[in-house]
Design a protein around this nucleic acid. Structure first.
Lengths: 154, 154
DNA sequence: TGTGAAAGACATCGCGA
DNA sequence: TCGCGATGTCTTTCACA
């Protein structure tokens, strides 16, 4: 697939805002007929521009009242140790995101749990027991100021 | 709406995996007919358990090749200063997430940009020019080890 | 590429158990 | 609450410009 044109981008923007937007709806906004919208979306799905459709749920209503960012520094930094840590951390359901970062620490983890008690349990019995953990520093989220899943597509 | 039961949770899990899952599909997996699925989803939408449906796009394919976490410490911590910072930061399209955290810094920002040049521009001409910025420390993402939008719902 | 029409699948809603 | 059936809407495809 070639690069996206302006129409593709507008379609993506609308789909980010509402994953259930119908082809008809999009077509009318863009002043086109339904078929090309349908085909463009299909192409963007096949090409990988569209990774998935999902439903955003309210974490707080589901009982997840604590989110924390966890800075992790490892002791050893060989390829094998890094890969092992990444595999182990990816298995933990409490860890919703994990990034290998350049800076003061090696990894940044976003951890979502029910409450502080569960977080404490997570740190002491799950994270700290992984091999090769050097130093862990947590930042607790007091307020979610902004959370925007949509990528700006001009 | 009362608390969710096991069936509601299984519906949410399926909808997180695939926002376009049809009622028919869900019904057949759960061994129920379509109507109760339809009604349960509608109730969860109305009650706010379901916040929105969206489309996940591939940031990298769209040209966003750099993600960074930006730790920000403010100079003054009065209510007015905090609110003002939060308002200003929420307006910045480069900032996809912003959290008020307890720890070494005041705020943690997730910044998504095209490349390092744009990031530099963002830091120097947009973030640093906000009122009341004390100290900024960036961690650049070298690798996204895990990114899981789905909340575990057992 | 785009348009328009037609077939099939799905969402939506009223009624009965 | 759930299941069934009717109706309107959407998706998907095809012939054609």
């Amino acid at each position: 697939m070639k690069a996206l044109d302006a129409i593709d981008r507008r379609i993506l923007t609308m789909l980010q805002d509402n994953g259930k937007a119908t082809n008809k709806e999009i077509a009318s906004v863009l002043g086109m007929s339904i078929t090309p919208i349908y085909e463009r979306i299909k192409k963007m799905e096949d090409a990988g521009y569209i990774k998935k459709y999902t439903t955003v749920v309210d974490k707080d209503m589901l009982g997840y009242h604590l989110m924390a960012f966890c800075n992790v520094r490892l002791k050893e930094h060989t390829k094998e140790y890094l890969e092992r840590f990444e595999e182990q951390v990816a298995e933990l359901p409490e860890v919703s995101e994990c990034y290998h970062v350049a800076g003061n620490f090696d990894y940044l983890l976003k951890v979502t749990v029910v409450d502080m008690e569960v977080y404490h349990f997570f740190i002491t019995t799950k994270l700290a027991t992984l091999d090769n953990i050097g130093h862990v520093q947590s930042s607790f989220v007091m307020k979610e100021v902004k959370w925007e899943i949509n990528v700006p597509i001009e």
